[in-house]
Simulated scan of single mutants.
Amino acid sequence: MLLAACLEGSPDRGGSATTEADAAPLRAGLPRLSLGSWTGDGHTDFHDVVGAIVDRRAGILVVANGGDATIRTFGLDGGWRRARGGTGRGPQEFGDLTALFEYRGDSLLAFDERRDEASVWSYADGDVRRIAAPSLPEDSLRYPKLYGALADGRLVWTAEKPYRQPDEVGESHPDTMLIFLTSPGGGGFDPIARTLGRRHFSYAASIHQQGRAPFSPEEFVLPRDSVILFGSTERARVERASGTGTPLEPIMFSLPPLPVTGSHRAWEIAERRRVLNSRPLPPSLVEGQTAVLDILPFPDSFPVLGEVVAGHDGRVWVRGYRPPEMDSTRVRDEPSVWSVYAGPGSRGRDIEFPPGFDLMWADELEAVGIVRDEFDVEQVLIVPLPAAARGRREP
């Protein structure tokens, strides 16, 4: 059933895309557009932006604002167009807007995580087509999640396949994320690949208790045209499969792993103790949870990758993992560095963006991302890319 199963566990294949060691990072230009304020009722009052997309043919910038579940449209000059959506149960409302994608060049694709539902929003009119998550095989898969669509209209979903065998005390077992496609109309179930999901441990304090390991790697899935990129942030590579499930050559990154030190462990345990002590819990429960902290397992290193973004032009953008103790002040003071790769065997190039820049969309000309100021006010920036950063398009 799985033509590209467990690719992540196979030996390394293909050429390495190593960054030029002696090349200084290229610097992105000054933002040509900045949208974001906080007046309480403005079109650019953003809160919890979950997606931002540029469509040059339509001449629009679209921002998905998770705070009020609205899809807001602007011109490429920042001029206001309209807002759609909102929180509620209506036909054009969301329970929880958590992601936004482009869809076939004339529509937007949104994901409502609370309803396990996708919706297609046409540029041309106000019609909205809702697509429920496909029915999954009983007792084997759970938590369907939308990751976008291929060029032919098939939706890309994942579902979690839990590890069914009981854990030994203190042992870790990863869940599996199964990647599957629907038909262009949204129905069906066509599994094509799988990747590692989150890790879970059992603890001596409670043999029935499971918890996520500190710094456990996250899975990622990135559809692009007729190719699906996927993997786990644990490894410095992107697995690739065609829309038919055929394994393709992976993209190798040159980001080294960051070791977990004693200070990292101390920070994590102290933070968990702070959260535990802030809750009005019975003393017996606090005692049990404290015992869990004393035996909390730690990996030797952080996940290699922090974030992975598929560029609109076919390139792949990655940022190294940032330790959780890196506070917002430090993030705001240091440039945000992303590495961009044109494809298998290509050489990565580092690009410096404004401090705190979280990339959401990019092509060969510009990148769109989110920054937050000292008051956590979110701004959407469109930043020009240096000409030297442009790479070949991958076939």
Rank of each mutant, 00 (worst) to 15 (best):
G90H: 02
R129Y: 01
P166I: 10
L61R: 11
G88F: 09
K145L: 04
I131V: 12
A64C: 12
R130L: 00
D55Q: 09
Y103S: 06
E117V: 01
Q165C: 06
T73N: 02
P162S: 07
L61C: 11
D139K: 14
P134K: 03
A151R: 11
S183K: 05
F111K: 03
R81W: 08
E138N: 06
G85L: 10
P166F: 15
L108S: 11
D175Q: 14
P134E: 01
R129N: 05
I53R: 12
E102H: 14
G187F: 01
R194N: 15
W80A: 08
R57Y: 14
R56L: 08
L196G: 11
L196T: 07
D125Y: 13
G66N: 09
G186C: 02
L155V: 00
W157S: 07
V62D: 09
R81H: 12
A99M: 03
P174D: 10
L108H: 12
R164M: 15
G197F: 04
E93W: 00
R164F: 13
E138T: 05
T70N: 13
S122V: 10
I192Q: 05
I71R: 06
A133M: 10
D127E: 14
F189H: 02
I192F: 07
R89M: 10
D139V: 01
V50I: 11
A193L: 05
P144M: 01
E160P: 00
D125F: 05
D96F: 06
L178H: 04
F180D: 03
T182S: 09
K161Q: 15
T158P: 04
G186M: 08
R89N: 13
